[in-house]
């Protein structure tokens, strides 16, 4: 099983000016854009309701995933990309939405009420509220079925993929299926990269610890000399 630890919020990191950058991960990027394309084929009404917001960027920040997503609205199919916490996004997002992946997907499918999630503080929103609201309202009307979209995004292999999904996910509730599927898709692609990152971070931490110890040492020595 994958370990879903809760990374620090990217939205908070953005406000604090911490560097983020698009993850140059071809399989993940491909997967996401396929999903977005399939989404727009199935729900042409959604981009239609959002044409006023073309050019705006929204950060979707699942609190239990080590990556987040930048959604860029356009005149037609939105662009979607994953971001990690290491470097910079090309442009600061206009708004961000952070919440558990399960809540975000339930919201996408209209299975829960966005206002209710927000009132209970399960969702944290920063930046341009109008953008967030417009997206929420457009999605709510669309009756999104995540499973169908993901199936669709496999193109000719869709029936096969669906059969595989059904076999793999039998017994799950619809919601769990969406979450689990998206979670696995995202984490599988980035897991290796993250493993590498965390070992790098661990190495850096060790270096910092080492440096701190070195800096402290002379002071301690001075103290001793004063006493003696």
């Amino acid at each position: 099983m994958l370990d879903f630890r809760s990374p620090p919020p990217l939205s908070g990191a953005l406000v604090a000016g911490l560097p983020l950058r698009l993850l140059p991960t071809p399989p993940l990027a491909w997967f996401l854009q396929q999903t977005a394309d399939a989404f727009c084929r199935l729900h042409p009404g959604v981009p239609e309701r959002l044409t006023d917001y073309a050019g705006r960027h929204l950060l979707l920040d699942p609190s239990d995933l080590p990556v987040a997503f930048i959604l860029t609205l356009t005149d037609s199919t939105p662009r979607i990309a994953a971001v990690g916490q290491d470097r910079q996004v090309p442009e600061a997002p206009d708004a961000s939405v952070r919440g558990a992946l399960a809540d975000l997907t339930a919201l996408l499918e209209g299975e829960v009420d966005g206002d209710a999630l927000f009132f209970s503080r399960h969702l944290q929103i920063t930046g341009d509220m109008e953008l967030v609201l417009a997206l929420r309202n457009a999605l709510d009307d669309a009756r999104v079925d995540l499973r169908r979209i993901i199936g669709e995004s496999f193109g000719h292999a869709a029936p096969l993929a669906r059969a595989a999904l059904d076999a793999a996910l039998g017994g799950y509730t619809r919601l769990d299926r969406g979450v689990s599927l998206l979670g696995r898709a995202v984490t599988a692609v980035t897991q290796e990269r993250l493993d590498r990152q965390s070992s790098e971070i661990e190495k850096l931490r060790a270096e910092v610890r080492e440096l701190r110890t070195q800096r402290r040492r002379p002071a301690t020595q001075r103290q001793r000399e004063d006493i003696s």
């Binding site: 406000v15 920063t126 930046g127 341009d128 509220m129 109008e130 967030v132 609201l133």
Partner: peptide, 26 residues
């Protein structure tokens, strides 16, 4: 209007701004 609402994180707290005014802090 949503266009004039901003949620500004302040550490653990969130400040709610409407136009130029702070209307709440959670």
């Amino acid at each position: 209007p949503a266009s004039h609402v901003r949620y500004v994180p302040e550490g653990e707290r969130v400040q709610v701004r409407l136009g130029d005014f702070t209307i709440n802090r959670f």
